[in-house]
Simulated scan of single mutants.
Amino acid sequence: MSLTKYPMTVAGELALREELERLKKVDRPRIVQAIAEAREHGDLKENAEYHAAREQQGFCEGRIQEIEAKLSNAQVIDVKTIPHSGKVIFGTTVDLINVETDEAITYTIVGEDEASIKLNKISVTSPIARALIGKEEGDVAVVRAPGGEIEYEIDSVKHI
């Protein structure tokens, strides 16, 4: 049994709990109903609806188990309750400036399940987050990327 703690923000925990609720109360009953209807169509060996529904059931049950395991080992971190030290920590939002190009970018450091590059939310385990953690406003963080090293100056650190 793994004792891995999954760091997540309050919003990340809420999103997982909402997904779990939907899987158990909406998706699971719908899939059970689809399996029952497919069984009524006769021969299960050649019944595509039955096999598709059973496959969906497997995915649904697997995701339920995965979410339950993560929630049971969740380390929910509410960044708003942590005294603002100006340091980059889990849950903070960081404004960065690429030293070479002067491009500005903002990232929020979140748990793995919450990461979304479209929303500028990066996983705490990502190379950028690892380079930023512990640094302060004005520091330069060196990120080792596949295309070489990128230097970012930390413009501001916010506890949102």
Rank of each mutant, 00 (worst) to 15 (best):
79 V>M: 11
114 E>Y: 01
75 Q>D: 13
69 A>F: 14
90 F>Y: 02
96 L>T: 01
106 T>D: 04
115 A>E: 03
50 Y>F: 15
99 V>K: 04
110 V>M: 01
107 Y>T: 02
75 Q>H: 08
113 D>G: 08
41 H>P: 00
97 I>A: 15
86 G>E: 02
105 I>G: 00
87 K>P: 04
57 Q>G: 11
112 E>K: 09
106 T>Q: 09
51 H>R: 15
56 Q>T: 12
54 R>I: 13
69 A>W: 13
52 A>V: 15
97 I>S: 13
115 A>Y: 00
75 Q>E: 14
80 K>L: 11
95 D>W: 07
64 I>H: 00
111 G>P: 00
97 I>P: 04
44 L>I: 13
100 E>D: 13
41 H>I: 10
117 I>R: 07
43 D>N: 09
101 T>P: 03
101 T>A: 03
74 A>F: 07
66 E>F: 13
70 K>G: 02
65 Q>G: 05
41 H>E: 11
61 E>S: 10
99 V>Q: 02
61 E>K: 09
94 V>P: 04
79 V>N: 04
109 I>M: 07
70 K>V: 04
49 E>I: 12
51 H>T: 10
118 K>L: 13
44 L>D: 05
50 Y>A: 01
79 V>A: 14
102 D>I: 14
51 H>F: 08
104 A>E: 14
105 I>E: 06
120 N>G: 05
95 D>M: 14
73 N>V: 08
73 N>T: 07
64 I>G: 01
89 I>H: 02
92 T>A: 13
112 E>C: 06
100 E>P: 03
105 I>L: 11
93 T>E: 15
78 D>K: 10
99 V>L: 06
120 N>V: 08
82 I>T: 06
108 T>L: 07
108 T>Q: 09
47 N>W: 05
48 A>T: 14
58 G>V: 13
68 E>T: 05
120 N>T: 11
99 V>F: 01
88 V>T: 06
110 V>P: 00
109 I>P: 00
69 A>G: 12
81 T>P: 03
68 E>N: 07
99 V>H: 01
46 E>G: 10
64 I>D: 00
84 H>S: 10
99 V>N: 00
112 E>R: 05
89 I>L: 15
90 F>K: 04
59 F>L: 15
70 K>M: 13
101 T>H: 03
68 E>W: 03
81 T>R: 12
108 T>H: 04
108 T>N: 07
103 E>K: 13
